[in-house]
């Protein structure tokens, strides 16, 4: 296996110093009207430059957040084990609360979220990854928690680099995260420190690479005509 990120690797010392800078996204822009690449844009809109608004998605929403969101964030801030730096940003979008946290604090925050009597997020619905190739901390792990007592939902999000993809495992708090963290490791190569058995789950054991990363090479389809090949979907001319 050429895979560099083995599950039992320990975190290199002195890494998470500049995390707060790394969580900030980069500007990204797109040229032309149709996102054409590799061939001339004959539409006449080739000089058009469009800045994507997604780049500024990680700026905290100003208070008040509305609904129950202020209360949840306030209670989290009251806890001594959660320092100011561990909560990177609080984003409220489309009626959903997202709390961006540091990758080495996720376990403590989950424990507080589960055990605090005024939070009581008993159920961890989903753990999964998202790859944002344009950002420095490109690998995001997203946790969806539900409080059945208060009928609330919250999303926790951590971001790590592809070079140092270490996130604390939350299996000791939410045993249901076991398979979901394995899937995120399998698909994105995020290493969950403290997971009891971090192995591949959907792909074969001897697979190399992490298929859900955006830079994972896709296969084309060979055609039985003079060695031609239908290019993989990300290289075809298409609207982007």
């Amino acid at each position: 296996m050429t895979d560099k990120s083995q599950p039992n690797e320990s975190r290199p010392p002195g890494e998470p110093a500049e995390l707060s800078e790394r969580v900030q996204p980069q500007e990204s822009s797109q040229k032309g009207l149709f996102g054409v690449s590799g061939t001339g844009d004959t539409s006449g809109f080739g000089g058009l430059v469009r800045h994507t608004t997604a780049a500024s998605a990680l700026v905290s929403t100003p208070r008040p957040f509305g609904e129950y969101f202020d209360e949840v964030v306030d209670i989290l801030n009251e806890h001594d084990e959660i320092s100011e730096e561990t909560i990177k940003a609080v984003v409220v979008d489309r009626g959903e609360l997202t709390i961006h946290v540091a990758p080495d604090a996720i376990r403590d925050i989950c424990r507080v979220m589960r055990d605090d009597e005024s939070l009581r997020f008993e159920l961890c619905n989903s753990v999964s990854g998202v790859d944002y190739p344009d950002r420095d901390t490109r690998l995001h792990v997203v946790y969806h928690l539900t409080s059945m007592t208060y009928r609330r939902r919250v999303r926790l999000e951590v971001a790590v680099t592809a070079e140092d993809p270490h996130v604390d495992s939350v299996t000791s708090v939410y045993p249901t995260a076991d398979w979901q963290e394995r899937e995120t490791y399998d698909m994105f190569g995020v290493v969950f420190d403290g997971h009891p058995n971090l192995t591949r789950i959907l792909m074969p054991d001897d697979w190399s690479g992490h298929p859900q990363r955006k830079d994972y090479p896709l296969g084309g389809i060979p055609v039985e005509y003079k060695g031609a090949e239908i290019p993989p979907p990300n290289e075809r001319r298409a609207y982007k």
């Binding site: 608004t53 997604a54 999964s128 990854g129 790859d131 944002y132 997203v142 982007k240």
Partner: peptide, 16 residues
């Protein structure tokens, strides 16, 4: 869990 980056295609869709 659906993520959009503003395009005509999903950036990521995860099914729980």
């Amino acid at each position: 869990h659906a993520v959009s980056e503003g395009g005509t295609r999903p950036h990521r869709v995860h099914l729980r």
